[in-house]
């Protein structure tokens, strides 16, 4: 498989400096950063590609780009505080610096999505990398046919990008539907796991489906998509693994013979469905 990573430096481990132009605390643990390359160059990437984001002394973490390359002045990432590096990244604020390597890996193959019906199924933090594609489709809406977006969260308080969600709810450009596993007092919407959204919709068999969410989600979503009869080459998954180098060397993200960092993180389902350990 090919790889669309960009490592311009002679040392593939050399990060590039970014200015944090804006930050926003999305939830208790998730923070959004809007970044610009400090050397003034334009950051080019494909929706779905990843970055290695770092703070000197703390290390690097792989993060999917959360904005579309159609929005050219800056780009977004969302970092959840889970460990040592993410804690250090999330301690940074507007006007300060973050470092990135990338874009790395293969994002969404837009040639397979253009002029097609598209359904994006995102769970929890899975909305971040798919947001790059959502924005892309909305910005080039005429290049795509029907566009549905299903988003599931554990609770209303854990919903990300609430401004975006509000806009998508109103937008005629996307059929946005959402659900939460557990409602709170103010929630008037759907309650239940994300597959309930699939059940209440008519999904044509020629739809291109993108799935991104926690590992458990894939199995149940796939059962529904198989019942509809969607060919596996038309289903795209965005996988997550432990990663260190991001350039296909260190071995941590390997699933069988594939490196998630280089061969993915986006795979068509038929590429990975028979690979043991991909979804177990």
């Amino acid at each position: 498989m090919g790889c669309n990573c960009a490592t311009t430096e002679r040392n593939i481990y050399m990060p590039r400096e970014c200015l944090i132009t804006k930050t926003r605390q999305l939830t208790r643990t998730e923070k959004q950063f809007t970044l610009q390359l400090k050397d003034g160059s334009h950051f080019t990437y494909q929706p779905g590609q990843i970055l290695e984001v770092s703070v000197p002394g703390y290390g690097e973490i792989p993060i999917g780009v959360a904005s579309s390359p159609t929005r050219t002045d800056s780009f977004d990432i969302v970092v959840r505080t889970v460990g040592r590096v993410s804690t250090a990244v999330n301690a940074r604020n507007e006007g300060e610096t973050l470092w990135i390597r990338g874009p790395l890996g293969n994002g969404f193959d837009l040639n397979k999505l253009r002029h097609q019906r598209v359904l994006i199924i995102a769970g929890g933090l899975g909305l971040c990398p798919t947001r790059s594609l959502i924005q892309y489709i909305l910005d080039k809406r005429q290049e795509f046919r029907d566009f549905k977006l299903f988003f599931g969260s554990r609770s209303p308080a854990e919903q990300l990008f609430t401004d975006d969600l509000a806009a998508w709810r109103r937008s005629p450009a996307v059929d946005y539907q959402e659900t939460v596993d557990r409602a709170d007092a103010n929630w008037a919407g759907n309650v239940g796991v994300i597959t309930t959204l699939i059940d209440r919709n008519e999904i044509p068999r020629d739809t291109r489906v993108i799935i991104c969410g926690p590992p458990i989600m894939y199995r149940f979503v796939m059962l529904r998509l198989d019942a509809i009869g969607i060919p596996h080459e038309n289903i795209f998954v965005d996988l997550e693994r432990r990663m260190k180098c991001g350039v296909g060397k260190c071995g941590h993200c390997q699933i069988n013979n594939l490196y998630v960092c280089c061969d993915g993180p986006v795979f068509s389902y038929d590429q990975v469905e028979n690979l043991e350990e991909a979804f177990s």
């Binding site: 790889c3 990573c5 490592t7 002679r10 040392n11 593939i12 481990y13 350039v247 296909g248 060397k249 280089c262």
Partner: peptide, 11 residues
Amino acid sequence: EFFTDGHADRR
């Protein structure tokens, strides 16, 4: 081969 394939690892 491993360190040359894809991204050449100068280190």
